[in-house]
């Protein structure tokens, strides 16, 4: 991994804070509803960063499995917001071309398209677009559920467009 990427990663405040403050107690891992499905526990991810294993971290499944429920964050004795930490790691993985979480990346992409086009999203449209991109069979299985939504007047395929939405073109 290039030094520039490493530096950017380590300068990210939520990552930096975790590396600095973590006492490796494992409260986060044991609080996480999804840690059983992760390849490394959240605590281990912090320790891997401390030991320079950036590549392995950005390649890991763990960072994409966080549901940002923040249970770890409110229980952490070092007051580290590990939810924010995971979001930051995802950002670094994404911007550095680690594309091992295909499903999630497609979701993000679909999401971003909506935002950039309308400024708002339609969950129904988002789910349909996303399903078609990833798993058309599953999309078909969803039809009964969709019909049910429709019956209850919930399946709106419209998206309202936000006026005056220049912010999305801002250079950051």
């Amino acid at each position: 991994m290039s030094e520039v990427i490493t530096l950017r990663l380590l300068e990210d405040s939520s990552i930096h804070t975790a590396i600095k403050k973590c006492i490796q107690c494992g409260t986060c891992s044991a609080s996480c509803p999804l840690s059983h499905y992760m390849d490394y526990t959240p605590r281990k991810i912090v320790n891997m960063l401390r030991n320079g294993m950036y590549n392995e971290v950005l390649k890991s499944k763990t960072i994409w499995l966080c549901s940002t429920c923040y249970l770890c964050a409110v229980r952490c004795p070092a007051k580290i917001n590990l939810g924010e930490f995971m979001i930051s790691l995802r950002r670094h993985a994404l911007s550095n071309g680690y594309n091992n979480a295909q499903e999630y990346l497609k979701l993000i992409k679909t999401y971003a398209e909506f935002i950039e086009k309308y400024g708002r999203i339609s969950e129904a449209m988002l789910m349909i677009n996303y399903s078609l991109k990833t798993n058309p069979v599953k999309a078909i299985k969803m039809i009964p559920f969709a019909l049910n939504l429709m019956k209850n007047g919930l399946l709106s395929l419209r998206v309202e467009k936000v006026n005056d939405f220049q912010v999305v073109k801002t250079k950051t």
Binding site: I108, I115, R120
Partner: peptide, 20 residues
């Protein structure tokens, strides 16, 4: 004329823009 809050997803794409 409100717009989407960006949820946690947009922060993965571009943090600063997510806040904007």
């Amino acid at each position: 004329d409100w717009n989407c809050c960006g949820s946690s997803l947009y922060r993965v794409i571009d943090e600063k823009k997510a806040y904007l």
